[in-house]
Design a protein around this nucleic acid. Structure first.
Lengths: 300, 300
DNA sequence: TCGCCCCTTCGGAAATTGTGATGGCGTGGG
DNA sequence: CCCACGCCATCACAATTTCCGAAGGGGCGA
């Protein structure tokens, strides 16, 4: 028994004629006849009395009709509900962070997603560039903010802005910092970042250019940990410009450093995933980025 | 969208593998794949995430699953209800009577039908042979009791018993009835029956055999009316033997009359109608009649 | 890196469904 | 009384759909 049997059953019951039911269902009268015959056979009951004037429901058919209607309605409810879910994103999206919320403009992103996709749960998970990348790769995150150049063909990368870097120094070391020569600074204690952090690459580039090696003190792979250690006087470190603005415990040294790009990454193979597209769309609005061609085409 | 799409959807959701779902549904794995693909296309949503380990419901699929189950359950309810109605007769049957209930053993017939087909409404409609026959022909009755030979190829006739006929006479005329010679009786007043009643044929045969003509007094085509008139002294009449047993107002004359058969008729083209078969089966039980070959075969 | 598992795709076969023509049957009008 | 009409059942054949086996690609674990 299939739905078309029931559809035909109801149509014939309402039209009382195979001919009219066939017209209503845009098919031929023998097809309708076969549907009814097959349905009667599988149900083992007679649904209609064949009269010279048409088809009349038997008492059994009369009793079965409302149930057939109910089955059709239930099937139709599946379709209707699906239509309602058509463009709605439900479920959850997990986004990895690598620095502070304000800089990443998270409130605007959250607001945009919440407005357009009210049933989408958004999880913003703190981390770092180094932890975010593998998490995206294995699917623990759907997308993430990262800094630095990404050389991974499986990743789609979206450039957001350049982060200027500075050398942050604790106020407690101000007396010992008499020069901004790199070679001199290298002799002071430094707070390292882990090698997979973009700040690490910047630090290496800085010291390699001057052929010197800093004194390693500690490794922090969380940006706020790094910042806190610098404040606490553990040593110097590379941080985003501005984090020590109006900070009594630390300050920025006037040393020219290359900036690193802030980027947003996700698995390339998911670039057509509606979830990813929705996130990228909102992100583009927040950061003023035109979407790639494929997305622009879709947005029409 | 058809039911098999939903069946496959639910099976895959439960098995979490196309392969296992295919086994469960006794079909091939590509077929299952195609079902899911088609369903996703018509619904316009993605139901499953394809993972290397199998199929995992998306949030949308998760939301649609219970509705799909409901639709399947509704369809299944149609079938189940039909199975319940399979051999049950519902609706009504109309049976025409031509004489009194006790003689027709109606209570036994009614009891048998009520026991085996509790949802069948049985209507016993009083009438006469003359009115019952056309009523059966046009479908106003499903079957009827009649007396006398029936010569109608469209009718199926079931013999029940022979009715012995007698001449009934009012007690008030006893003094005037000095002879049981037909010629003498013909001079007395008679209560006629209508020509389509079997008693009429018996009466004609009686008088034709003796070449005389009775005095017509009144025509009654309802048996109880005939009996009442005889009792009231209107005249003589032909009635079933026994109706005047122990009756103070009328008595039977010892004149030999041919008996007429009591029969049960229905439209021949309905002989395979379950309603008719059920009635005939019960009737056979009541009257001790073996059913015709076709019915015997079915009863096994 | 290999083997395994799982899903998708593909071409051709098989089954199902649909179509137009035809016939039986009963009804109503001429 | 006969014929024409409307309705449904049936039939042979065509169109569509579905199904199957084989092959392919991708991820995972050994």
């Amino acid at each position: 028994m299939e739905l078309y049997h029931l559809r035909t059953f109801v149509a014939v019951a309402e039209e009382k004629h195979l001919t009219r039911a066939a017209e209503r269902l845009f098919t031929s009268q023998p097809a309708i006849s076969a549907h009814i015959k097959a349905l009667e056979e599988t149900l083992g009951v007679t649904l209609f009395d064949r009269t010279p004037k048409g088809m009349r429901l038997t008492p059994v058919g009369e009793e079965l009709l409302p149930r057939a209607r109910q089955a059709l309605a239930a099937a139709s409810a599946v379709m209707q509900h699906a239509k309602g879910l058509q463009d709605e994103l439900i479920g959850s999206v997990r986004i990895g962070l690598n620095t502070d919320a304000r800089f990443l403009r998270l409130t605007a992103l959250q607001a945009g997603l919440a407005e357009h996709y009210p049933r989408l749960e958004v999880a913003m998970l703190t981390g770092s560039t180094g932890t975010n990348l593998p998490a995206v790769r294995v699917g623990k995150l759907d997308a993430a903010f990262v800094t630095g150049e990404i050389d991974d063909p499986s990743m789609s990368v979206c450039f957001l802005c350049d982060e200027p870097l500075v050398i942050g120094a604790p106020a407690s070391l101000r007396d010992q910092i008499t020069s901004t020569e790199v070679a001199d600074l290298a002799r002071l204690p430094w707070v390292y970042t882990s090698p997979d952090c973009s700040h690490f690459a910047a630090m290496r580039a800085l010291f390699d250019a001057h052929c010197c090696e800093p004194t390693r003190m500690l490794i922090a792979n969380q940006e706020d940990a790094l910042v806190e250690m610098i404040r606490a006087g553990v040593g110097l470190g590379i941080v985003r410009a501005g984090v020590f603005a109006a900070d009594a415990q630390a300050y920025e040294l006037p040393v020219a450093l290359p900036s690193v790009p802030l980027q947003f990454v996700y698995l390339r193979k998911r670039e057509n995933d509606p979830l990813i597209r929705a996130v990228m769309h909102q992100l583009g609005a927040v950061w003023g980025i035109e979407p790639p061609e494929a997305m622009a085409r879709e947005a029409g």
